[in-house]
Amino acid sequence: MEPSLPFYILATLSVFSALMVVLSRKPVHSVLYLIFCFFTIGCHYLLLNAQFLFAVHIIVYTGAIMVLFLFSIMFINMNKESEPHKNTLIKIAAGVLAGLLFLVLLEATKGAETLGPPSPNESYSTVANLGKVLYGQYLLPFEIISIMLLSAMVGAVMLGKKSVD
């Protein structure tokens, strides 16, 4: 399947906004670009006919997490002085390493176009089908993930509450 025109528009927008997250000087701008980036990625799900994923992505990432992010960034005092000075050598080394990883991944995904995206006509991602898979084949992971959420919650309460002494 050939990628359509909307795909190219969305892809350009998401790459642009992802770059702006890193390049913009003000942290608040970065967060706003990140929200935009998540939104465009959500639209990619829509192109792949995954409406449920689209809705969840918008609600969870763009809605909940990014608002939290924005709040916490506004709370933190981000002055120039408070930022620790990084060693230039470490900066260069990190840049080279990240670039190499990027090259490896770029090269690796080259063969992926032969596989092609799943056909958008299938109704595989409707909420009904998703529910069947989640409560059928993936019942155990679905249930056991509650332990993970529980431990995160217990941990948050434990670290957050005032000790008696």
Partner: peptide, 22 residues
């Protein structure tokens, strides 16, 4: 998927325990 969930259950509890001496 179970590998990922298992690792995460273990790790999240450990992050908290590591910081448990407040």
């Amino acid at each position: 998927s179970m590998l990922f969930i298992g690792i995460e259950i273990l790790s999240i509890s450990l992050y908290v325990l590591a910081a448990s001496n407040k």
